[in-house]
Design a protein around this nucleic acid. Sequence first.
DNA 1: CAAGACGCATGCATAAACCTCATGACTGCA
DNA 2: TGCAGTCATGAGGTTTATGCATGCGTCTTG
Lengths: 298, 298
Amino acid sequence: MRLDRFDLNLLVAFHTLMEERSVTRAAERLHLTQPAMSAALRRLRESFNDPLLVANGKQMVPSPHAEELAPRVAEIVGNAQALISSSTLFDPQTSRRHFRIAASDYVTTIAVQPLLAELAQQAPGIRCSVIPPHPGITEQMERGQVDCIISPEQFQGQGHPTELLFEEEHVVLGWSENPLFAKPITQEDYDAAGHVVVELSNTPAFAEQFVRARGDTRRIEVTVSSFTLVPWLLPDTHRIALVHARLARLFIGKLPLAMAPPPFPLPRMREMIQFNRARATDRGLVWLREGLRRHAGN
Amino acid sequence: MRLDRFDLNLLVAFHTLMEERSVTRAAERLHLTQPAMSAALRRLRESFNDPLLVANGKQMVPSPHAEELAPRVAEIVGNAQALISSSTLFDPQTSRRHFRIAASDYVTTIAVQPLLAELAQQAPGIRCSVIPPHPGITEQMERGQVDCIISPEQFQGQGHPTELLFEEEHVVLGWSENPLFAKPITQEDYDAAGHVVVELSNTPAFAEQFVRARGDTRRIEVTVSSFTLVPWLLPDTHRIALVHARLARLFIGKLPLAMAPPPFPLPRMREMIQFNRARATDRGLVWLREGLRRHAGN
DNA sequence: CAAGACGCATGCATAAACCTCATGACTGCA
DNA sequence: TGCAGTCATGAGGTTTATGCATGCGTCTTG
């Protein structure tokens, strides 16, 4: 069942070794022991009749032949990965898959965290990394380094399928003792108050972009690059912030906070999940999307 | 070292099963026993959670899911095959490879047969099939069903690398008692004689095409579709034939035959070997080409 | 219709390949 | 110099191959 006595599984080992440039780390990624990966490298060296990776001090350096092979192997392994993950059953109970999700800390709190809590029992072997979205994240997804990107509709790249995860409204959040919240907040109240706003990698957040488009006379007193940090900055001050309704509801009761409708209309934010078109039928990703949608439902 | 616990070698089994549609034949092609292939099919069925191939009377019929998978698997296996065969050593002594060569019976006699004789000792595990060239053979090569095509330069398709194997001259061959061979053959002698000619799948052979282009007044008494048959048709008759010099030399001494230069100039025939461009560096094919060239040298 | 041929699936004993665990050898760094 | 980190190597257990036997279904044939 071999192609010219060559074990195709060795291609997976080679691919991982070339990415990690370390026997130990490659072994970890494939859930193997280090000696097993070392033996795999030995078999690869015999098969290809080339050292492939040579120890140079603390680093493993690819040989020229390995460099030539790498992209071709990457293609084969990528195709096989796509084929297998879209055609074989995905069993959360036994899967040891590692998901990589690009999402803001807000989405992580609202959608990813509850899923992870559920996973602890239902899918004990699954690992999950969350990385912040940034310009160039789409390319990273295309290279297969990220499984999906969760962001508001406006921030999504083109060329890959995208699904609605949930819709979100915004509210004004502030200290519960702030007299502003005694009666409905007016535009004048809003403009006169000190504000906490969020910018992620120099890009104003969804709500921020709309407020600024209206013409901005607010005093921005604090700028942070985290949504979940905002509620902590409001108690004992007269500052207010325009935050996601789900986030506000989560923190009210835990911190001395009050919320109110904003004095101006704001479009509903549509939080989307985008994934590589080549992975549209990946059973694991289908399961992940389903789980995220379920937890973000409310 | 597995991709999501999936044994990539099973893809080779699947690919072969889909091509052969028979557990027994697929097992033979992969040098496996029938029970081993049956077990592989069982593992494939478990992995893909689909029957894949179901026995319908005497035939194995692919399921819809198998039909979807087939082309993707074929691509992966093809890429892997190309990668491996171009990067791993080819050892004739231990290889169990099966070469498929498209060549006329003339080329088989001159170049393939001596190589096969050598192979009996040097490469006991190698198998070799020779099939006749025919229209559409290039497509067969592109699908990977044929390793190389040996034919005169004029008959070679486009788009794939082609190398000179050897050059060949033509001579007039006839019965050794035929008075024609007592002195140089003239054009009149030639035109007046009865002829044996070769046509392969309704295409006149190389020499035949040139003779006909000159304007043809010969009496064609016998047409056959085999070059090596021609010498057997000449003794005890006054028929003559325009045959490859190597073939003439091979038969003279074994049969009562005589040869003479043709009474008109004939271009040298350039016998070429063509192979799929994707396999240009296939170490096995490189070895095969080298061997053929060595034996056809004279 | 009965008998035989053929092909897929399965069981069992044995051998090979591969994995884990434990350990050794080497490099770089404090 | 000693320690941490990394790769390689040797002793035992699981998967998967082989060879052989066999059951079961279907198609063919006398």
